[in-house]
């Protein structure tokens, strides 16, 4: 009789294993999805999402230090939002500057860039810059303005740090330029 009970015990255990393994077959479905997701096996789904820029030289890192100055006759506060960034030559980078007109009258100014070392200037390719045009600020206006640029991969190897410095000049009373934005927004 106890033999029969023992037999029944094994029977029940084995039936449990059978049911669990049947469930395991189904558990493989979400498990498979998760593994594909984590390892990115089914990459066909995002083949077009991120085209890799082969122009970027990821073996080099250049430190870009940002500097901002205002001529004394211009009552503006001018500063970069980040003091330095690390960039790869060939990489498209955006940095932000902020200007505040501290006076109670509208003023127009224009920024002039300079580079240190000077040789870096010819490899510094700006796509977008507030310095391309005159900027007019209403009294007390604050505005953040971007610079979008690529450092050319041809930058000499010994240049590892570039200083980008802008100086705003007061251009009040000067002849308006063609590029002057109508509503004062940076172009």
């Amino acid at each position: 009789m106890s033999k029969k009970d023992e037999n029944r015990g094994i029977l029940v255990k084995m039936l449990v294993v059978t049911v669990v393994m049947f469930g395991f077959g189904y558990a493989l479905v979400p498990l498979y999805k998760k593994i594909c997701e984590v390892t990115g096996v089914n990459e066909v789904e995002r083949a077009n999402a991120l085209p890799l820029n082969t122009q970027v030289d990821s073996t080099r890192v250049v430190t870009l230090e940002l500097d901002a100055n205002v001529r004394s006759d211009l009552p503006w506060k001018f500063r970069p939002l980040q003091s330095s960034v690390k960039v790869h030559p060939g990489q498209l980078v955006q940095v932000m500057y902020e200007v505040r007109n501290a006076s109670d009258r509208p003023i127009t100014g224009q920024a002039i860039p300079s580079y240190g070392p000077q040789v870096a200037g010819q490899f510094f390719r700006k796509q977008e810059c507030f310095c391309f045009a005159k900027q007019t600020f209403a009294p007390g206006e604050v505005r953040q303005m971007p610079v979008v640029f690529v450092i050319d991969a041809g930058l000499p190897k010994d240049v590892t740090t570039i200083t980008l410095s802008y100086t705003f000049f007061n251009v009040e009373g000067a002849a308006p330029t063609a590029a002057k934005p109508a509503d004062g927004k940076a172009g």
């Binding site: 084995m14 294993v17 059978t18 393994m21 049947f22 469930g23 395991f24 189904y26």
Partner: peptide, 14 residues
């Protein structure tokens, strides 16, 4: 057999 036959049964059931 006890471990894998149920998995096959699951596959054909799917």
């Amino acid at each position: 057999l006890i471990a894998v036959m149920p998995v096959f049964a699951g596959a054909v059931t799917m």
